[in-house]
Amino acid sequence: MARLASVIFFTNNGDIVAKTRPVNLNIPSLKFPITAIVSILHRLSGFVLFLFIPVVLWVFGYSLTSAAHFHNLALAMSNVWFRLGVWIFFSGLIYHLFAGIRHLFMDLHWGESLRGGRIGAWFILAVSVVLIVLLAVYILIGLDHVVY
């Protein structure tokens, strides 16, 4: 149960009114709109991708060192944890890419209204989830045919 307190508001027509407002917010009771969820996921995926930079650089350099090194990476794909890492990285990349494209469209005043923003948010979330699930299927099943 939230504690209540009187808060003074200044209205547009110059009146000063006191209203009763909850003081300590009950965080779980707050509903985050889809646009807020998509936005925070964009930020989170960006941070995850930042953490992956040295890993990707290492794998990139390793793959170009020699044919034996390249082959080692192909063998590493049989490892479950390596596959999980690859999946997390590309999931972050897919999501960040589509959320970023939505941002660029909004910079062009496309899908910038409240309704447009919500539609765009649901759209990129749906596209990303479908691609991420397909990626999981490909990594789990399809890659076996590529690696071996």
């Binding site: 793959s63 020699s66 390249f70 990349l93």
Partner: peptide
């Protein structure tokens, strides 16, 4: 934004390259 647009094109091109080389070897890479 400029870097984002460049990277988006690079990633798509790289993905297209990998899709065209399903059995990638070290020499090709």
């Amino acid at each position: 934004r400029l870097s984002a647009v460049y990277m988006a094109f690079y990633v798509v091109l790289m993905f297209a390259y990998l899709a065209c080389h399903p059995h990638l070897t070290y020499d090709v890479w």
